Computed example of a mutant assay.
Amino acid sequence: MITSIFPVICADDVAATRDFYAGRLGFKVIFDSGWYVQLEAPSGNRPQLGIVEREHESVPERFRQQPAGVLVSIEVDDVDAVHETISAAGHEIALSLRSEDFGQRHFMTVDPSGTLVDVITPNPPSPEFAAAYAQSAAD
């Protein structure tokens, strides 16, 4: 039986990556050994995120490269406010802030480890997507 699941990001600079998630997205540091940090979102359901030093002996050598093909999605209450904070801090904006027909207002940024981060606030989907969602729920 699975009791928990959370991503762990390999980072060259654990402290900078920790500070990005804690300082810009509100995560709380619940454990920090220097080479490994465990973060917890301040929401009621307590999602967690880990950060490990990329070159640490606990990471197999062939998996120590920069991330590619990985996208971490984080849902927030006010994506516009987070976008303003991230932009003002000078972090890369990989995808501009936009509202999508499928029911999200979001933007993508890159954390200090090179991981692509999709920051999302749900919004009402277009009528076409709402109908597709309703059909899927009925099936």
Rank of each mutant, 00 (worst) to 15 (best):
I2W: 04
T3I: 09
S4H: 14
S4P: 10
I5C: 15
F6L: 04
P7K: 09
P7N: 14
P7T: 12
I9E: 00
D12R: 15
D13N: 12
V14P: 04
A16Y: 05
T17V: 03
R18D: 01
D19A: 08
D19H: 04
F20P: 08
G23F: 10
R24F: 09
R24K: 11
L25D: 06
L25K: 06
L25A: 04
L25H: 10
F27C: 01
V29R: 02
I30V: 13
I30C: 03
I30E: 15
F31L: 14
F31A: 15
F31D: 15
F31R: 13
D32K: 00
S33W: 03
G34M: 03
Y36I: 02
Q38Y: 02
L39Q: 03
E40K: 08
A41H: 08
S43P: 04
S43T: 14
S43N: 12
G44Y: 05
V52I: 05
E53C: 11
E53W: 03
R54F: 04
R54T: 06
H56G: 01
E57I: 09
V59I: 08
E61V: 08
E61Y: 02
Q66I: 04
A68W: 09
A68N: 12
V70C: 09
V70K: 06
L71H: 11
V72E: 00
S73Y: 07
I74V: 14
E75F: 10
D78T: 11
V79M: 02
D80K: 10
A81L: 08
E84K: 14
T85I: 14
I86F: 06
I86D: 02
A88R: 11
A88S: 13
A89Q: 11
I93C: 12
I93V: 13
A94D: 14
A94C: 10
L95C: 12
R98T: 10
S99A: 14
S99N: 13
E100F: 01
D101F: 04
D101A: 10
D101P: 06
F102T: 05
G103V: 08
G103C: 11
Q104K: 06
T109N: 13
D111F: 09
S113D: 01
S113R: 01
G114Y: 06
T115W: 00
L116I: 15
D118L: 12
D118N: 15
V119H: 03
T121Y: 03
P122Y: 03
N123C: 11
N123A: 08
P124R: 09
P124W: 04
S126I: 02
P127F: 06
E128V: 07
E128T: 11
A130R: 00
A130S: 05
A131W: 03
Y133M: 11
Y133K: 08
A134I: 03
A134V: 04
A137Q: 15
A138F: 07
